[in-house]
Design a protein around this nucleic acid. Structure first.
Lengths: 366, 366
DNA sequence: AGGAACGTTGACAGCGCTACCAGCAACGAC
DNA sequence: GTCGTTGCTGGTAGCGCTGTCAACGTTCCT
């Protein structure tokens, strides 16, 4: 009985051990902790494995050891440029390590996130990277009970599940508005899309800054739950102008919206920054290249992903960071679109090459 | 002897079977092929599983069944917008299925691709999605020998490993150039970055179209191996202008470059399309929103990813497509940036809302 | 009535690897 | 010389699930 002897040419650990003249368990150890072997056996197993082209069977390893070498990553969107930078960092950090990345998309739904979390945890991942700090109570309980390291990314907050790496969206927005005030702008509109928790916190920062200056007016805020796009930026700006034609600046919750606003200004022959200043968020690559160049808040997305994965892998292997919460801060990159008020919007010829003046701030967890 | 009885509260299939009053193997069948059970046992197992909150152990399943439910995806880049659309399609199609996506990044290196392929195949994936048709001989041999369905995406070519879904980059580029000729442009430059095989084929299409018209000149082609960016588009265009100041159109190998060219034109006060027409490639969202709106070649990236994953899953489950090679074609989306020659570049006020005239073509495999 | 055909169920033996513990040699301390 | 102690190695027994085949009950045909 039993089964057909497949054994389809696949090299097993036992074969390697036999060729090396050691027991299977010794060969196994070679792949997990080579230092535990004597040098002689180590080289014997190594050459045997190479000769046979042995590749370990991960399923068997996972079954026997009761854990996997998978790092689960939960992000809200694959479309958003912002996450592709973070992901690139995560993948870069995982490369060369033994861990592989398992990606899942919550589609900005915390219920979907909870469902995915349950699935992930059932497979005993080596570690988990989750986006943001707004999980359901159930999700939080599962995370807390999970016996693997966890990193929350994209923002920082008061109550980390385990580790946390990001920056304060609230502070970043406040800094952007402070910059606009410094440049002499007073009637500053807010344009936001999707309105996920992080965009919401940027809005909160905007509102607080405006209220502090006594300039807040609900009519200056235009938002939608629709996913963001350049075209949408133009449309929301159009709404804003219809409501408040005499604004002198717009703070956009992201750079796509900012680009859309810029194009809409051009379409309407509104001088930027002469009549209206524009500030975006994220500092995507094109912001430095636009005409006029566009001010934005730089966030360290690639570094965030890379550091998160590195911290996670270290924690998995027992090297926990001295500091579990890491604030990567942000920088307001001042460019032409928000230079001090003036009537002539034509940028200097040096255009994109103009030096980027920066305002750097570590954000402080609120 | 043996090991510590972990059994850490984890629900096993045997527990479900016991509660349902059936043998473990019957319970197992419920999860893999419920139709094989009598209705009575089916409902019993179902409610037992739900009651206990059973989640199958994928490692054990993979080990016992000698196959996984993982779909491997090899793409050259995570940064490129183009791939994020494809990926979104792949993830969307996989959602709700039993298969999970395992993503790896070849970094545009076919040797890296070969290495990753070896790793993937050792884990017996249920299926594989690979980018393009330029694999190493070794990779091709491995793919051919793999006992799982394989889809090549992004382009089509004469010799599919298994299934293939994409379009002809060569034909798409020819169509773009043909459009520019129709609009009266003659001295058409080419701007390309990265120069991966697909961009190379776009260049080939450009060269062929220009030669057919007797207009080809090597000096009209500016390329670099550097990864693409908006800023780079401006820089390459600057090079092109320095060499050939009297060009009347630029075909950009992608939309980021096209946006960079547009900004550079604005910086230099070159009228678009009055003095120079611009055509991009991919039709990213912002192209319809730019001022002037930018002509591009629309490619069905999301659909490509979604269809590829759907075809693959069907093939895994034994439903092979009637037609293994699928040409998704392309469309030249005519916008203001390439409208017929005229001296006034100012777009109509309706701007972004202007109807997009399309030229649709299925590309034919060469 | 006998038997073939089908649908359903269960017993058994592993898939390839690792956790646990025991054993063994070499070494130093007393 | 005896007793730990340390470093390395190996034996045994599974991890949780499924492939295979046998066995059963039922239906339908001759």
């Amino acid at each position: 009985m039993g089964r057909k002897r497949t054994k389809s040419g696949k090299i097993r650990l036992a074969e390697v051990a036999e060729l090396a003249g050691v027991s299977p368990i010794t060969a196994s150890r070679f792949f997990r902790n080579p230092e535990a072997l004597s040098v002689a056996k180590r080289t014997r197993v190594e050459s045997a494995a190479k000769e046979l082209g042995y590749v370990p069977n991960l399923a068997a390893r996972a079954l026997a050891s009761q854990r996997t070498e998978v790092i689960g990553v939960l992000i809200p969107s694959l479309t958003n440029n912002v996450f592709s930078d973070v992901l690139r960092g995560i993948y870069d950090a995982s490369e060369g390590s033994r861990y592989s990345i398992q990606l899942s998309n919550t589609r900005y739904s915390i219920l979907q996130e909870e469902r995915l979390l349950r699935l992930f945890l059932a497979q005993k991942p080596a570690g988990l990277i989750v986006t943001g700090i707004d999980q359901t109570a159930e999700s939080r309980a599962m995370l807390q009970a999970a016996d693997c390291p966890i990193v929350q990314i994209m923002e920082i907050g008061p109550d980390p599940v385990d580790m946390m790496i990001g920056f304060s969206h609230y502070d970043a927005a406040r800094a952007a508005i402070a910059h606009l005030f410094e440049q002499g702008h007073r009637k500053i509109g807010f344009v936001g899309a999707r309105m996920d928790p992080r965009v919401q916190r940027r809005l909160d920062g905007y509102v607080a800054a405006m209220k502090d200056a006594g300039s807040f007016d609900q009519r200056l805020v235009v938002t939608t739950a629709t996913p963001t796009s350049v075209t949408l930026g133009g449309a929301l700006f159009t709404d804003l102008l219809a409501r408040e034609p005499d604004i002198d600046a717009v703070f956009c919750a992201n750079d796509d919206l900012a680009l859309g606003v810029l194009f809409e200004c051009r379409r309407r022959e509104i001088a930027v920054p002469g009549q209206i200043a524009i500030v975006g968020f994220n500092d995507l690559e094109f912001m430095a290249s636009a005409v006029p160049t566009l001010t934005s808040v730089r966030t360290n997305r690639y570094e965030m992903g890379k550091t998160a994965a590195t911290m996670l892998i270290n924690a998995i292997e027992g090297r926990r960071p001295e500091q579990p919460v890491l604030d990567l801060g942000f920088k307001v990159i001042e460019r032409q679109s928000s230079s001090g008020r003036r009537s002539d919007s034509r940028p200097a010829v040096s255009g994109a090459a103009a030096a980027n003046k920066m305002i750097a701030l570590p954000s402080s967890p609120d």
